[in-house]
Amino acid sequence: MSGPGHGHGHGQCQCEGHLDPAERGLEYGLFRKIDQERLECLNEFVESDDDEELLFNIPFTGNVKLKGIIIIGDDDDTHPSEMKLYKNIPHMSFDDTGREPDQVFQLSRDLTGEVEYTTKIARFSNVHHLSIHITKNFGAETSKIYYVGLRGEWSEGHRHEVTLCTYEASANPMDHKVDLITPQTHFIA
């Protein structure tokens, strides 16, 4: 028997912390906030070419507070076993992967998207570009990824426009025409 506010109807659990698949998909809604025209995956999407490495360059249309990632792969050795995250390095290449990553995860085989890798939110609170480097898998020559889910909060990016200003270190009264000099007008020389 279920208590007040705890109802199961037609196979859907309404419990706190348990979401049906449709609601769980909404949590990973950052897909709509990716700048699709600038999205890059080096070494082909889904399956790598000659080795196990994959590199995804994911630009966002605003700023993201990245909270979690899920990686769905196959139940074999092509499933990724290590993932490194880098923030705000647009057009990252394999030559740049020697940099210190912002976070590293050892991955488990996940066929259904049940395992979420929680990011260090303080480190990933102002992300406009995310690079995901899959460094290795469970032993196959190539890596396969079926789905990458990104969970977080999106906010509109702030444009920083350049403003040109000229400042005077000290004002020169001769540069400023004064039509009327009154006793209250004082010049500091």
Rank of each mutant, 00 (worst) to 15 (best):
L164F: 07
E27R: 06
Q14I: 15
C13P: 14
R24S: 14
R38V: 02
I134W: 11
D50V: 01
T97G: 00
K136A: 05
L26G: 11
Q14M: 11
T135L: 03
D110H: 12
C15W: 08
T78E: 15
C41G: 02
L130F: 00
P90Y: 01
S108I: 15
S108Y: 12
L26W: 03
K177H: 07
R99H: 05
L66T: 01
E100T: 07
D35K: 01
K136G: 04
L107E: 02
Y147K: 13
I70Q: 07
E156N: 15
G152P: 03
I89R: 06
R38M: 05
T142H: 02
E16G: 08
C41L: 03
Q103L: 03
V127N: 03
F60G: 00
N137F: 00
I34K: 00
F56L: 14
H91Q: 08
G113D: 14
P183I: 13
L54S: 05
P21Y: 10
T182F: 06
L130P: 00
Y146R: 12
I132V: 13
K120I: 15
N126A: 09
V46Y: 08
I34M: 01
T78A: 11
M1Y: 06
I58M: 00
H128A: 10
L130G: 04
L39S: 02
D20Q: 10
Q12H: 13
